[in-house]
């Protein structure tokens, strides 16, 4: 008990003092997970929506692949990205291994399937009548699609949040392709998860706990915003 309490106390002190290394690592985590999620949205939402609306030959196979992506163990993603970017790998000459770009690339493959799969479920569950009615009222195909996506917006927001959550809490893949590097106490490719792992290994529980607290607070804030958004949309929807 003493150990836990001590680490929490020291962690809060470290955070309150605005330790530059802690801030750099936090910023790196947010930057990498955020960028990966944005790319994940750009690819995942259209793919998910498309799979939900269009039925075509090979649809089952495509949906299966997408759901497989959902179950993809992040460490395996890390391994593949590592192999691709390794000096002995096909893209080795770009020297991307152990850079934030490599981490964004790995986290993209973790967040995009999550976003796509949840979007597919959400868009797919918009009642067919909405589409039929829209088309009946003379909406074009593009307008109809847009309408359906708008109807599923709460789920899509959840999809984005889940994708971001998957990316920011990931540790195995980012560690493998990021390397958790620092120079002169200045963070280069460490994220909150990889730094936490490294600090635990060193027995520095206070700093590990600091990142643990930040991740928890972050999860709380995001969940709060998400819930408020859902409430807002639901209230408006119920009033109309």
């Amino acid at each position: 008990m003493g150990l836990l309490w001590d680490s929490i106390k020291q962690a809060v002190l470290r955070l309150a003092s605005g330790d530059p290394f802690v801030l750099q690592v936090m910023w790196m985590s947010l930057r990498v997970a955020g960028t990966a999620t944005i790319f994940g949205m750009i690819v995942g939402i259209p793919v998910g929506a498309w799979l939900a609306i269009r039925k075509f030959w090979g649809w089952g196979a495509a949906a299966t692949v997408l759901n497989l992506g959902l179950m993809l163990p992040p460490v395996v993603v890390g391994l593949f990205v590592f192999m691709m970017l390794s000096r002995q790998g096909p893209f080795g000459s770009f020297g991307l291994l152990y850079t934030p770009t490599a981490m964004i690339f790995a986290e993209f493959w973790i967040s995009a399937p999550v976003i796509a799969a949840i979007t597919m479920g959400g868009v797919g569950s918009v009642p067919k009548e909405v589409r039929l009615q829209a088309m009946g009222l003379g909406a074009s195909r593009r307008q109809t699609t847009w309408l359906v996506i708008r109807e599923a917006r709460v789920t899509i927001i959840s999809a984005i949040v889940a994708g971001f959550g998957a990316a920011i809490s990931e540790v195995g893949a980012v560690n493998m392709v990021g390397g958790n590097l620092s120079v002169n106490g200045h963070n280069m490719t460490g994220t909150m998860t990889t730094a936490t792992m490294a600090f635990v290994r060193q027995g520095n529980y206070a700093l590990a706990m600091a990142f643990g607290i930040v991740l928890l607070v972050l999860a709380f804030i995001i969940t709060f915003i998400l819930t408020r958004t859902q409430q807002g949309i639901r209230r408006r929807w119920l009033q109309s």
Partner: peptide, 28 residues
């Protein structure tokens, strides 16, 4: 139906979040 779908998707989203966090923790 819409509400049910919404609730279901939220549960899925939350479960995913939990799974993702769980994975992270597990690896640590």
């Amino acid at each position: 139906a819409w509400l049910w779908a919404l609730a279901l998707m939220l549960v899925v989203a939350l479960a995913l979040g939990v799974v993702a966090v769980g994975c992270g923790g597990g690896e640590e």
